[in-house]
Amino acid sequence: MDIVAELLAGSRLALSRAITAVENEYENATAIMQKLYPHTGRAHVIGITGPPGAGKSTLTDKLAKIYRRQGKTIGIVAVDPTSPFSGGAILGDRIRMNELTLDEGVFIRSMGTRGSLGGLSRKTADAVKIMDAAGKDIIFIETVGVGQSEVDIVKAADTTVVVLVPGLGDDIQAIKAGILEIGDVFAINKADREGAERLKAELDMMLDLDQVKAEWRPPINQTVASQGTGIEELIATIDGHIDYLAASGELARRRTARTRSELIALIEEHINRHVLKQISSSGQLDEMVASLEKRQEDPYAIVTRLLAAFLR
C-alpha cells in the first residue's frame, strides 16, 4: 500500500510521514497532496493565535478535550518560531497537551517556522489538509500571532480565535499588529488576573469602531484555561460562529476566497520556480544583471521580454 492509501485507511504513521514529506519538500509531496485533495474540505478549521505567553496551547488543549467529549476527532498543527541564529527550534506546545497524546481521536503535530516566508503558510495549510483527509473533524492551527507570516498561517482557518491576556503590557500593540482584523472570536485568557476588565473594555471599543465586522461582531470571552474556566462558553461562541458562517453563506465565500488565493499562491510559486530555474541555470540571470549594471537595459524591458518568451 502506498502512503496515501495507508493514510486513508487510518494509519497514524502514514499521516505523520505525509506531513513530513510536505514539510521537507520530499519528491513525493506533490503526489501525496494530489491524491489527498479529493478527500479534503470536510473539517472545520479553527485558528488559535495571540501573543507569546497568552496560554494558547493550554486553551487549545481544553477546547480539544471538550470537542472529544462530543465525539469529534481532532487534529492540531502547532507552529513555533525557529531560531534565526541556529535554525533550530524548541517546539514547546505539545507539552501542554500531554493528556491528549494517548487519545486515538487526536493527532498533534508541531512545526517550526524554519525561516521560510512564503512556504510556511502553504506547508501548514497542507498539514491541515492532510489531517482533514485523514478524517479529523476539527483541526486547530495554533501559532504565535506576532507577524505577517503567522497571520498568513491562520488564513487557512474558518474560525480564528485571538487569545489575549491582561498585563502583558503589549495588549494594544498586539491589537495594532493586525490581529484585530483576523479575529472572529476573542478570548481574554488568564482573566483572573488584574486588568482583564480593562482589556475587555479597550477591545470592545476597538471592535465597535470596526465597521467591516458589522454582520458578525466578534464576541469577547473570558477564560482561565489552566483551570478550565470559561471553556464551555468559548466553545459555544465558536460553535455560534460556525453556525453563522453556514447560515450567512460566509463559509462558502471564505472557502472560495481561500481556494482562489491558494491557487494563486501555487501558480506564483510554480511560475517563479520554473522561470527562475531556467534563467539561472542557463546563465541568463547573470547576463541580465550585468546588462542592468551597465545601464544597457532597464529591468522593465527585461521582464516584458521574459514574459513574452515564456508565454509563447
Binding site: R12, L13, S16, R17, I19, T20, T82, S83, F85, S86, G87, G88, A89, I90, L91, G92, R94, I95, N98, T101, L102, F107, I108, R109, S110, G112
Partner: peptide, 30 residues
C-alpha cells in the same frame, strides 16, 4: 537547548511520561 542551538527541532515531553506516551509523541511528530 544544546540540540536547538545545533539546529535541530526539539520537542520536549516534560516529566513522568509513560513508554506509551513517548511512543505516540514520537509517532505523531515523526
Amino acid at each position: 537547548r544544546a540540540l536547538r542551538d545545533a539546529g535541530f527541532e526539539v520537542i520536549y515531553t516534560g516529566l513522568r511520561q509513560t513508554p506509551e506516551q513517548i511512543t505516540e509523541a514520537a509517532l505523531q511528530e515523526d
